[in-house]
Amino acid sequence: MQRVNMIMAESPGLITICLLGYLLSAECTVFLDHENANKILNRPKRYNSGKLEEFVQGNLERECMEEKCSFEEAREVFENTERTTEFWKQYVDGDQCESNPCLNGGSCKDDINSYECWCPFGFEGKNCELDVTCNIKNGRCEQFCKNSADNKVVCSCTEGYRLAENQKSCEPAVPFPCGRVSVSQTSKLTRAETVFPDVDYVNSTEAETILDNITQSTQSFNDFTRVVGGEDAKPGQFPWQVVLNGKVDAFCGGSIVNEKWIVTAAHCVETGVKITVVAGEHNIEETEHTEQKRNVIRIIPHHNYNAAINKYNHDIALLELDEPLVLNSYVTPICIADKEYTNIFLKFGSGYVSGWGRVFHKGRSALVLQYLRVPLVDRATCLRSTKFTIYNNMFCAGFHEGGRDSCQGDSGGPHVTEVEGTSFLTGIISWGEECAMKGKYGIYTKVSRYVNWIKEKTKLT
């Protein structure tokens, strides 16, 4: 034993070699072989497995989906700052455009905790909710729209109204504003409101030439003092309507412009014939205590009207009353817009006519005020429907199939267009061939041609 100890002390290297040989010859039971080890760690190889990531292109799944990435790591994937920024906006807080917040056709661009709407022409605001041009839906104005110097929408209202708090709607500024039905039992019968379409306001006024200088022999019209197929109006439903009495009662109609003036057809009036105007009328054979009678003290036909040349060209006249009318729910003026808007309103496509005229061709006159909704007829169809001249200051309205029309005794009465609950004068009943005849239409004086003249002559002093 002493000898062994001496050998170990003198030859430590020998001992180490012996131990190493023993270990190498022993069977290893701690580690699995290569094949079995792979069965336990069965993990798919990654895209760049075996390579240094710093030297390969980034992978979106590896960089940002398996674990949260930084902007720089995302930049490695896209290799483009702009594309990385677009991805980053949604990656950080989701897609803010998912709810489609942009209105009126706006395009949404996502941002971090926010979004941006790219608005089409005519709109602005956070969600493109603000109209900035009158060309689109009248700028959301209830009545009139004008573009300011910086191309912003400025709404306005006709006389007797003021802008509401929203700067879009119009509200009454006087007790009985024009064009409004205020009798409670008839307010439910107000005709369907007309909503502004998209309009090209630059070209809204037709490029028409008034044929002022045409000389033409007097034409022989049949029954051209021209509501057939209409309905009984309720008291106060058309408070701007008046009836004219002269040699015979209810020979023509008219509309209240203001307390002192009536507008009617020029062919209705004769110099030297006494005319009485009755406002607030409903049943011409009954006294309903809503009527107001006034005498006409002055007749002003349009300066281009000449019955000797043509009885229905420039067929418009103004009547001055001896005493002002007292405005109330049964006696209310009709609204008159400017030339541009009167023309736009007419193009809405349908209007209402009213009167006490004959209820059928050569038949009896109506006792109760009649009204009828009539569609506008395109000019080409209008011209083809008659052998008589249709001037540019006239328009056609009615039904091709016949059966409904204005008729004798309705002449001078109103053709009105309702705009968001307020009625505007767009025409004056003038003439036609018979009444409600198939293929024939009622012919009306186009008020847009005469609004400046009306307003100039009827100013209240």
Rank of each mutant, 00 (worst) to 15 (best):
R3E: 06
N5W: 09
M6T: 13
M6A: 14
M6P: 06
I7K: 14
E10M: 12
S11Q: 07
P12W: 07
I15V: 08
L19S: 03
C28E: 03
F31Y: 15
D33S: 11
H34K: 10
N38A: 11
R46K: 11
Y47Q: 14
N48H: 12
N48K: 10
K51D: 09
L52Q: 15
V56D: 04
V56A: 12
Q57C: 03
G58Q: 07
G58M: 08
N59H: 15
E61R: 15
E67F: 03
E67K: 03
F71Y: 07
E72T: 11
E73G: 15
R75L: 12
R75P: 10
V77T: 15
T81Y: 05
T84V: 06
T84S: 08
T85F: 06
E86N: 15
Y91T: 04
D93H: 06
G94F: 04
E98A: 10
S99D: 06
N100M: 07
N100S: 11
C102E: 00
N104P: 00
S107L: 05
K109I: 08
D111W: 05
D111C: 04
C119R: 00
F123E: 01
G125E: 00
G125D: 00
N127R: 07
L130E: 14
L130G: 05
T133Q: 09
C134W: 02
I136G: 04
K137W: 05
R140F: 07
E142C: 02
F144L: 03
K146V: 06
K146R: 12
N151D: 09
V153P: 11
S156H: 10
S156F: 13
S156N: 05
C157D: 00
C157W: 00
L163T: 05
L163Y: 01
N166P: 01
K168Y: 11
S169Y: 06
P175T: 08
G179M: 01
R180C: 03
S182V: 09
S182E: 06
S182W: 07
S182K: 06
Q185T: 14
Q185N: 09
L189Q: 09
L189T: 08
T190P: 08
A192F: 08
F196A: 14
V199S: 09
V199W: 11
Y201F: 12
E208G: 06
E208H: 11
I210D: 10
I210T: 13
N213S: 11
T215Q: 09
Q216T: 11
S217P: 12
N222R: 13
N222H: 05
D223N: 10
D223C: 05
F224N: 13
T225E: 10
T225L: 11
G230I: 14
G230E: 11
D232S: 11
K234G: 08
W240C: 01
V242A: 04
V243M: 05
V243I: 14
N245Q: 09
N245A: 06
G246N: 09
D249I: 05
F251L: 09
V257L: 06
N258I: 00
E259S: 09
W261P: 01
I262L: 03
A265G: 04
A266T: 00
H267K: 05
V269S: 04
T271Q: 10
G272S: 11
V273E: 13
V273D: 08
K274A: 09
K274E: 12
T276C: 04
V278C: 04
A279E: 00
E285M: 08
E285G: 07
T287M: 11
T290F: 07
K293C: 05
R294S: 02
R294T: 01
I299L: 05
P301R: 11
H302K: 01
Y305S: 02
A307I: 09
N313P: 03
H314Q: 03
A317H: 01
E323N: 12
N328R: 01
S329D: 14
Y330S: 03
C335W: 00
A337Y: 00
A337P: 03
E340M: 08
E340Q: 14
Y341F: 08
K347E: 08
G351M: 02
Y352F: 14
V353A: 06
G357K: 14
R358P: 08
F360W: 13
G363H: 13
V368R: 11
L369T: 13
L369H: 14
L369F: 12
Y371C: 06
Y371W: 15
L372K: 14
L372N: 12
R373Y: 07
P375D: 13
L376S: 04
V377S: 03
V377K: 04
R379Q: 11
R379P: 14
T381K: 05
C382S: 02
L383Y: 11
S385L: 11
K387Q: 14
K387C: 03
T389H: 14
I390P: 09
N393Y: 05
F395T: 02
C396I: 02
A397I: 02
G398C: 02
F399A: 09
E401I: 11
E401K: 14
R404Y: 15
D405I: 15
C407Q: 04
Q408K: 13
G409V: 07
G409R: 12
D410W: 15
P414K: 00
H415S: 01
V416A: 10
V419T: 05
T422W: 01
F424H: 02
F424I: 01
T426I: 01
M437S: 14
G439P: 08
Y441N: 03
T445M: 13
T445Y: 04
V447G: 02
S448L: 02
Y450G: 01
V451A: 12
T458N: 00
T461Y: 10
T461H: 14
